[in-house]
Design a binder for these strands. Sequence first.
RNA 1: GGCCCCAUCGUCUAGCCUGGCCCAGGACACCGCCCUCUCAAGGCGGAGACACGGGUUCAAAUCCCGUUGGGGCUACCA
Length: 497
Amino acid sequence: MSDNNEVRVRFAPSPTGDLHVGGARTALFNWLYARKHGGTFVLRIEDTDEQRSNEESLEGILEALTWLGLEWDEGPIQQADRLELYSDYVSLLMSSGHAYYCFASNDSIEEARNAAQESGENWIYRGADRDLSADEVREKLEEELPHTVRFKVPSEESIVVNDIVHGDVTFETENIEDFVLLRSDERPTYHLSNVVDDIQMGITHVIRGADHVSNTPKQILVYKALEANVPLFAHLPLILGPDQKRLSKRHGATSINIFRNKGYLPGAVVNYLALLGWSPGDDREVFTVPDLIREFTLERVNSSNAVFDVAKLGWMNGQYISQVPAGELRLSIREALQIRGCWQEELDMERRDFFFALIELWQSRSRTINDLADNVTPFLSEAFAYQPDALKEHIHSKDLLGGVQALREALMQVDPWAADEIEGTLREVAAGLDMEAASLIHALRLALTGKKVSPGLFEVVEMMDREKTRSRIDRLLRYLKKLADARDKRETQMARA
RNA sequence: GGCCCCAUCGUCUAGCCUGGCCCAGGACACCGCCCUCUCAAGGCGGAGACACGGGUUCAAAUCCCGUUGGGGCUACCA
């Protein structure tokens, strides 16, 4: 804290819902900036709105940040716990003549504003109570008239926001109304608490969404009135839905915890998010976190809004799933299998090698942990059905029954039980019966997995072990016999008729 | 309405500041081919963009102006 050059940034969510991708991206950029510069990342909870803030949201946000690996150095500091601080600052502003009690009712201001809107006139609120004498104010206060405290916005002044992303943005104070600092319930508004905390916490860089650009001149006014240093700003482009509208629930899953539940990996989410609004300037796209920390700069953040593309996130996640060592996937897959009810403790003990081999078999074919868990299920449980499309496509030849029977006998003799041996045996059987190897392969795949797609069949057979292979082939044989019987019956009926 | 921001393939973007190397590069998605027992992965190839109009200049995706479009703010929400 003593170092003057220390970078101090913060992520300041309001706990009114889940952490969405937009908030997560803001948190990430702050975190990256702090880590890159050896600075401090503060987590502050902006919960001054009593109505909308809630505890579950706060917990969800902390959970999501932790899952993403964006650990904070200070906090979480909740604004609701330090309300006196803001009142103190208001007193300061009051005594320096920068703020005033406003006794005008919300309704009356609203009315005037609407009237102005309708007549097409550009109307900015300037409180009449600015000019109340000290006696008049005391009198009204004694009467306990409801009031707010507003900032006395100066006239004819240009406020320049120096933004790292957008450059200088100039606002005229005549377009800024006397905004509320303290509500009638004496709780601070965002404009007050945000600035007070940023001053108080020594925040050097305010990195937040571009939806705050227009608020910034108001805040700069407060900094100046308080004679505090104005931090540097970086307003990040907004993240939009596929319809170019602001991202919201109706665009589907955008909350970080939902991605987590769907089996996305935090590294992939972080990597994808880093690329929304930032790029390294060359063609690289897959970054480890240390790489991101090294490469990240605010100067390379771009200024136009970005559409959130789940398909690309899915691709990114697939990249991560297929590249991460099986051991690192173990825990999350276990969790997914437990949910599916087919986890067995020995997969983490004596059958761990098998479990890892199974993971490796499916890694490049799965886009999420949940996909992977689904894919692995037939190897762990007998409870699977033959998929109709697989039956339709591969179970039609009448000779299949004999072929599968022969294959069963031959397979029981295979030694060692290894993919190469199994393949050799199957091809011999097919050649002996003058069948396409493919038709036996497809039948065997159906027998073992119930599906028409899987990794290389011979690896699958090897993974299944001899006993499981035998029982599943038997299951298929029973099915094929039933089919054959039904066919015979039909044929005799036809012959009779 | 007012104020502010933004504008390159469907999407994320490189290039723009410091004009020429760009009849615009990469990635996702899409299509085709290869590999192959299927599906992924991987490899190879294809289609696909400088919003529009004016300037400035020998030369503009790049600079300037305007138009259009999108977004944000305009709360006693943050």
